[in-house]
Design a binder for these strands. Sequence first.
DNA 1: GCCATATGATACTATCTTCGTATCATATGC
DNA 2: GCATATGATACGAAGATAGTATCATATGGC
Lengths: 144, 144
Amino acid sequence: MITRETDYAIRAMLYLAHHAGEGAISAAEVAEAMDIPYRFLRRILLRLVGKELLVSTRGKQGGLRLARNPEMVSLLDIVQAMDPEVITLNSCVLKSALCTRSSYCAVHDELCRIQIFVNAELGAISLARLVKHESGREDDLPQR
Amino acid sequence: MITRETDYAIRAMLYLAHHAGEGAISAAEVAEAMDIPYRFLRRILLRLVGKELLVSTRGKQGGLRLARNPEMVSLLDIVQAMDPEVITLNSCVLKSALCTRSSYCAVHDELCRIQIFVNAELGAISLARLVKHESGREDDLPQR
DNA sequence: GCCATATGATACTATCTTCGTATCATATGC
DNA sequence: GCATATGATACGAAGATAGTATCATATGGC
């Protein structure tokens, strides 16, 4: 399950992707536009900067920008930046050694197979693609 | 994420599938064989009975049996019996009305698409298939 | 230089979920 | 009648989640 924290991270990245090339945008603006608690968002953005998905500039006129082109950032990048394990189907997919039921587990194999597909799909969804899909409905876009 | 509770439910169902046609098996035996805390398992089995995936008989010589053939029980059935929401990628997949960011959300659409695939895959994995896959390794099977 | 504005870093807290235990009631075969 | 089995709930500890608070630091404009 994607947590609300990760959901906020995706929304924030999407907002910045919508306004890519417009210079730095403040956390306050993102919080306001995307309806995210400001202080909570601050901590999330800090993490995204740490994971090098965003770059920040401090001081007046400072703010956040995408570190890469929207084409080069996937949902998987964001999800993994926020929590490397959050979307796994089952803990044994990651930590197979912990599955003590037997040395071979058919469930594990099946879940791994599905997990690989899910990760591939998330990896194929770029911010650019999401922005493009939403651009068909200008009314609903978050405006500055 | 599949919780440990759901994981235990799958293990228990698998054990009962392995021994389908052998009459009722007690919760104590399943707990012992599958290394699951007995009282915790009791509550899980109660739920599986309530969801009509298992049938129970009380009293001496009582216990649990699969309510259907192993071919007719999928991982999706078990997961949904334990927690209808647990495996969803994002809460907005289920409760789209709660997604207030905008009336249209590209992320929602993408996640829904992946979720549908995951559910279809889980629905296609029957207990019979899992038992068959494990049967190639008799050493690892839980024996009575 | 000073100050408003911006992020960096981290500590704290309330609530919810998860995992597991405990208790008592009820049914049944020998 | 008693050992053995499930039915139904209540309870509790630990961890995750969601959000708040505080202080430090950097920077542009006056």
